[in-house]
Write a protein that binds this DNA or RNA. Structure first.
Lengths: 256, 256
DNA sequence: CGCTAGCTTGACACAGGTCAAAGGCTGTGG
DNA sequence: CCACAGCCTTTGACCTGTGTCAAGCTAGCG
């Protein structure tokens, strides 16, 4: 039993990855086993660690098992824009894209545990051959496609937030997105969740200044829409927040 | 010779598609032939036409042969955000993603000519089987992957523009992007190109008001960085523009 | 128990939005 | 061939959302 120092079983450690992929498309038994095997080769990183720098495309998919991270780009003068927040269950690096054409890096925002797949052994499930690029190479071709699809949707939402929504709307929208994504991996209650982000990080996600993020959060509190103390968030009025932000959760089963 | 009313040969009509894909990765002879065959089944659309509405994922890849379009989302109160400008050679709809999880539509900005692939006949080139989802289904699996990669990079650039750049920087950045993309398909000179976009469209791309787009363009003119009259753009000082916008063109050959 | 990182608040500045009006340009129909 | 209509661009005056600067405050931590 190599890496069980923290006392969790492999299944518990990899629960987030399992839930996320299974929600995209039910996993076969063989796939579930493969995911569980992730729990055997862990890797830790402290806050601030660079998980992936610019052009460095990871050949294999790396998943976040616990902790939060982000994808970001820095401008020459120090401005920072965060493209997306990564939570447990998310893949680090753009698995469809072995080497990004555009500079972006991934950075840990908290203490983090990662896991990478072993060599692409074709055990039981996939009908895919080796030749089809990284998206197919680990026994989850369909899941990785759906995952890329979901991520593109999140990027589009982000563009709308930044381009056409006010600070107030943006903030509400981001909170709703995080709440939805955390619920997907079983880490959010009906109305509450834990968000280990500083206001500086929120500012760099939302394209605002720290000070204005603070004021906007105050306003949301005064309007009795959220409660927020430390990392603890309560969505007091989901219906109203949803309308304000024009939030539309991703549709996981587009076919139906 | 069915659709040759406009007097162009299939090869000429499909030149943009060919150049774009060939730039991503050299095309085999069989692939080139497949592309040329696109020229046999054309479809036209007037400005303003909806090429793809919300959840409607096109099962087959559709390419723009001539004319410009955009991908966009409308907010309930009428605000509009454009995600990307589509030019000849670009695919309409997210070919990796048969049915988007997130609402977005594609709209023609000018008169447009489209072409869609026939049934996925596996003629000569691909080693891919049928089973791997739409990205592989037409004989260009690798090209579609690289194309998705390029597009993701463009979305990331767009996020930085909207989140962290000033109106002046944003506008310069967008012009540089369009210039680069048009050059890729052989539709831009060293310094000049044609941009059939109204200032209203630019505003909805850049997340600005029409009036401010106008003022910003004036400023760029006054600073002797661009010339612009009607649809005709001249980049007077590419080096300076590149620095101002922190523009980094996509790297098409990430491996090398 | 002092330090540092993060949060909060106020005063003020400025980028960019809004409103309003006037000029082009182009196409169309009389 | 002119006149009108409509769309696009341009400009000015003014307003406001958000940024900047500066200063306390709080709380966890060495």
């Amino acid at each position: 039993m190599p890496t069980r120092a923290n006392g969790m079983s492999p299944a518990a450690i990899t629960a987030a990855v399992f839930k996320r992929l299974d929600a995209l498309k039910p996993l076969s038994l063989g796939q579930a086993k493969r995911i569980e095997s992730l729990g055997e080769r862990l890797e830790a990183a402290p806050p601030g660690a660079t998980l992936q720098s610019d052009g460095d495309g990871r050949a294999r998919p790396t998943f976040i098992l616990s902790g939060w991270a982000c994808r970001q780009r820095l401008l020459p003068d120090g401005r920072r824009q965060i493209f997306s927040i990564l939570i447990p269950g998310d893949a680090v690096g753009f698995c469809l894209h072995p080497s990004p054409m555009s500079s972006a890096s991934a950075v840990a925002l908290t203490k983090i545990v990662l896991a990478t797949f072993e060599a692409p052994s074709y055990g039981s499930s996939s009908s895919a051959p080796l030749s089809n690029g990284p998206s197919d190479a680990w026994g989850f071709p369909e899941h990785m496609r759906l995952s890329a699809c979901l991520e593109e949707g999140l990027l589009l939402d982000h563009i709308v937030r930044l381009g056409r929504q006010t600070a107030y709307e943006r903030t509400a929208h981001l909170l709703l997105e995080l709440h939805w994504r955390l619920a997907l991996i079983g880490q959010a209650g009906e109305r509450r969740f834990t968000m280990p982000l500083t206001q500086e990080v929120l500012a760099d996600v939302l394209g605002l200044s720290i000070v204005h993020v603070n004021r906007t959060l105050q306003q949301l509190r005064r309007d009795r829409l959220i409660e927020l103390s430390g990392a603890h968030v309560v969505m007091l009025d989901l219906p109203r927040l949803t309308v304000i932000a024009d939030y539309q959760p991703p549709v996981l089963t587009p076919g139906t």
